[in-house]
Design a protein around this nucleic acid. Structure first.
Lengths: 169, 169
DNA sequence: TTTTATTTTCAATAGTTTTTGAAAATTCAA
DNA sequence: TTGAATTTTCAAAAACTATTGAAAATAAAA
């Protein structure tokens, strides 16, 4: 059996690397993994120490996770420090991250695609018609994918599995 | 009505920005967008000129897209240059990109999660059991999402819409 | 209030990724 | 073959992103 602390470290490293590849800051992903793998709330100092990162970095990373709504502040009586806990319900935080990234990065692009699609609709040249079709196709596919995502995600945890089963028929 | 060339430029810029946010090199995304919006095959020189990028960059970006299988080489009789065309079937290239990124970036992570999950299974401490559950939950959710993706993607274009409809019930 | 602990900010620094462009390699026609 | 056209490579430079750490701001206790 693997040493537990070793397994946790591997989880943190893997999570950090995955984040980097998908445009999520390595430290942010690592703090998230550290809190996910911790049994107790952690204060900034402990996070700095465990991940060997600066106070500034720790503070910024924690704040981002709290802003995302996937890490919560936890006050501990008789202690002046702020402590943090990760949302442990995987579906809950996966949804929050997905919704947040969609709103921030995908929605503006989809708006522009719709606009381009609309603005090239009347073009009667072959070149114009061809380009319009290309943009329209992308726009239609992303709309479809969005519909799937909404159907799957705008739902409580139990329904998720149910919809999944329906999907597999 | 928007000037066609202006619309194409906006498409290229938007696509480049979206790529950057999701870990796809800006130039690569822009070359893809340029070829998607072009009516004719393009040679490296024209791509360099239109996007104002260096020969090295153009060459690398094109090669990457060809490797992904979403841009094809096209030989033009009596011309020594290589020309390139983008796959215009949106579903086809969206699937190829998704499958490629999944294999390259998600699969190794899922393998490690499975390994960590297995290696912490026997841990009888509360801390160990809790961590095991966290990892296991992530692993189960990603497996479920993979199943959805396979069901939707390992299928021809017509079926995609059909499955989508089923999903919406 | 003053003191002390804690958090936040942000300019400077370090690190990473992308891009350039010229040289090397390759391809093909003469 | 030779030589011109074309593609590929890759070290160096530029651009971009992340991280540090000390100073400023804030919050709580004395």
């Amino acid at each position: 059996m693997m040493e537990l602390q070793e397994a946790k470290q591997q989880f943190i490293d893997t999570w950090g690397a995955l984040g980097s590849e998908w445009g999520i800051n390595k430290s942010v992903a690592q703090v998230h993994a550290l809190l996910l793998s911790a049994s107790n709330p952690m204060a900034t100092d402990e996070i700095m120490e465990k991940l060997v990162i600066s106070r500034g970095n720790a503070n910024m990373s924690i704040r981002q996770l709290v802003d995302y709504g996937i890490v919560y502040k936890k006050h501990i009586a008789g202690d002046r420090k702020e402590y943090f806990v990760a949302e442990k319900d995987v579906l809950k935080w996966a949804m929050k991250i997905a919704v947040m990234r969609k709103q921030k990065e995908l929605d503006p692009v989809m708006d522009i695609l719709r606009e381009i699609s609309k603005n090239t609709e009347k073009d009667k040249t072959d070149e114009g018609k061809e380009f319009h079709k290309t943009v329209k196709d992308i726009q239609v596919l992303t709309d479809q994918l969005e519909t799937i995502a909404n159907k799957l995600f705008n739902t409580s945890g139990g329904d998720f599995l149910l919809k999944l089963v329906k999907l597999m028929i």
